[in-house]
């Protein structure tokens, strides 16, 4: 009810040029926008979409790595992986909370994930058949995520920016941990080196696609830049990631699955071959190796947990009723 009232009030002012101008000047001055501040409806909508997609990605992202928790090759790795996947659940929780400050409930957002209305990062639709994938996800997937997320620590929306500061700290720990797993494999037996190389071959291109379509084809960029929700273009972030990552791979003696990859002395950047955007579009559309599996796993956890959530609610209501009855009896 309360959220509805807010929406009505806001619609009345939605096109108020004065409010819009004041809002934009605050954003331009690098002031943080807080939940009770006036904001354009498009800004709110964009943030809800972005923050909830990010939250869903964390939650769905628990699945490919969760696949190795019971099979991790040492107790140290088992504990570290479990703690890492748990951190991702924690990130999901802060992000759902940040989205809730914009007037949507977690239930509603989870419902959008389960019905397929909301997206999550396509990278998690790829499978993790080998232990090396635990290293590769940390090194490449978390590495790419950090490139995207560090600028979000300065995002104009306060609750999101603050959540991202904590998340980035943990992600950068995960990335180093992932690289260390890959390093151990690269310096291990021939079978371990092969495991690492095979995993890099599978994850490299999907990791590059994580930055989204090329700037030439990206829909939301200009407005999001003006609102300071986004600060760098997809292609700039992708280039930063490649420049940081390629030397790390070469240091381990690994080969990137891109015959066109070369260092341009003049620009100081690594140049990559063409990205297969048809694969990207296909996986986003639902035609990736694990799309159905991932959503079904989330749906199953949701359905299997329904009786637990109902019991918790029923118990809380009983307690409250008993407390109220005791209070009346005492009076």
């Amino acid at each position: 009810m309360y959220a509805q009232a807010l929406n009505v009030a806001e619609k009345a002012h939605a096109d108020d040029p004065e409010l819009r101008a004041r809002f934009q000047s605050r954003v331009d001055a690098e002031e943080k926008i807080e939940p009770n501040d006036w904001m354009p409806e498009g800004y709110r909508r964009t943030l809800v979409r972005q923050i909830s997609q990010h939250a869903h990605s964390e939650i769905v992202g628990m699945l490919p790595e969760g696949n190795w928790i019971t099979r991790a090759p040492s107790l140290k790795r088992k504990a570290a992986l479990l703690a890492k996947v748990q951190d991702e659940g924690g990130h999901g929780l802060y992000l759902y909370s940040a989205a809730e400050t914009l007037g949507v409930s977690r239930e509603e957002l989870v419902g959008q994930l389960l019905t397929g209305k909301a997206k999550y990062s396509s990278i998690f639709n790829y499978p993790t058949p080998s232990w090396a994938d635990m290293g590769m996800i940390g090194w490449l997937v978390d590495g790419a995520a950090i490139m995207n997320q560090i600028p979000l620590c300065r995002c104009s929306y306060g609750p999101y920016a603050r959540a991202m500061i904590r998340i980035c700290k943990e992600e950068s720990f995960h990335q180093r941990q992932g690289y260390e797993i890959v390093m151990t494999l690269a310096r291990g037996t021939p079978a371990q080196k092969k495991m690492a190389q095979d995993s890099l071959n599978r994850w490299w291109w999907p990791a590059l696609m994580m930055f989204g379509p090329s700037d030439r084809d990206s829909q939301h960029s200009d407005q999001n830049m003006a609102w300071k929700i986004k600060r760098f273009s997809n292609d700039d972030l992708r280039q930063k990631f490649i420049d940081a990552t390629v030397p790390q791979g070469h240091f381990l003696g690994l080969t990137f699955p891109d015959p066109d990859l070369r260092f341009n002395e003049a620009t100081g950047h690594w140049e990559h071959g063409p990205i297969d955007w048809s694969e990207f579009n296909r996986v986003v559309r639902g035609e990736g190796p694990c799309n159905r599996e991932r959503l079904k796993a989330r749906q199953k956890a949701h359905d299997d947990g329904a009786w637990v959530r109902e019991a918790a609610l029923a118990h809380a209501e009983k307690r409250a009723a008993r407390k109220a009855a005791a209070k009346i009896a005492a009076e």
Binding site: I59, M62, L63, G66, I69, T70, L75, K78, A79, L82, A83, V85, Q86, G89, G90, G92, L93, Y96, A297, K300, A301, D304, G305, A306, V308, R309
Partner: peptide
Amino acid sequence: SEWCGHGPMLEEDLALANMALDLI
């Protein structure tokens, strides 16, 4: 640890992982 990612609610997923980590 077999529950990780499959708990009945997010808070409980984290709690089960915590207990698993303690025991490991």
